[in-house]
Amino acid sequence: MNTTAASESSKGWCIDLHDVSKTYRGKIRALQGITMQVAPGEVFGLLGPNGAGKSTLVKIMMTVIRPTKAEGRILGQPVGSKDALRRVGYLPEHHRFPSYLTGEQALHFYGALSGVGRRDRKRRAGALLERVGMNDWRKTKIASYSKGMMQRVGLAQALMNDPALVVLDEPTDGVDPVGRKEIRDLLAQLRAEGRTVFLNSHLLSEVEMVCNRVAILLQGRVVMQGTIEELTRDSRRFEIEYAGPEIDWLAECEGAKSRATADGARHVISLPGKDAQAAQPIIDRLRANQAVIHRCQMCVESLEDLFIRSVRDPATGRSYLPGAARNGGRS
């Protein structure tokens, strides 16, 4: 797989979307000019509140939904090209396998639809069921599978065609904590194999653990895109918590802010940036003023904080209403 990833890399982006729009029935604007790039070999996380358009975007990429407008390429092929899908594995959200098939038969069926030959299907089905821990259930009808087992078979199905790009829509949905850990490990393995993973998930902690880069969608628009480090760079700060009254000389320190703790007994001074050196003069002055310092800490925004910040209206401080935009902008 590393060879494949390298060849994709030489051509550019694995996913390179420009101006992807989708309007339902002429008034519900699910996507409004999405531009997004995913590099080969990375795990990319797509985030957003309910109705932001994440699944619509994924379905457009997978040709399940027809876009109102879409430019760009996936694995070097135009968006909507069926040829590109030969090298794409996809696990939809709330997928439904035919209940009359066994796990093994389901892999054969979807593998055949992806154009995988009979011999390869047989070999890969066995290996993948083993990989997702479903080998003992290969001959059992899917009707008797639990949700977690369905997800595992779904993941195996997405890998049947040895894809260069794996698109996973809520892969840990309904999976227990142990299963989630195993899926995270699998994603890490896929990345190590050089595959590109496009992950759509609500579970921010998981996305934070496995993704190189993320994009946050809100009402059909990309509001943030980049590595987690890039996106949280501005939120990095040095915090000093001390016991005592609010100091009156803080205005002399550029960018510093002070706030009282919930009980009002202490105050917290925040300094933008990650340079601890800048905090030393403040610490010296606090100690000179007999203030008791309880905590000095470098703080950075978590992905959850970043997400909450991105879906909040800066003017009102309240979250945007869930769902797609109707006849234009945010509400």
């Binding site: 379905k59 399940v64 939809p92 035919p98 979807y110």
Partner: peptide, 16 residues
Amino acid sequence: NFLAGGAIDLVLSKPV
């Protein structure tokens, strides 16, 4: 059954 959400997505996402 074939057209049900979750079932048809799997089929339409294949190169057919």
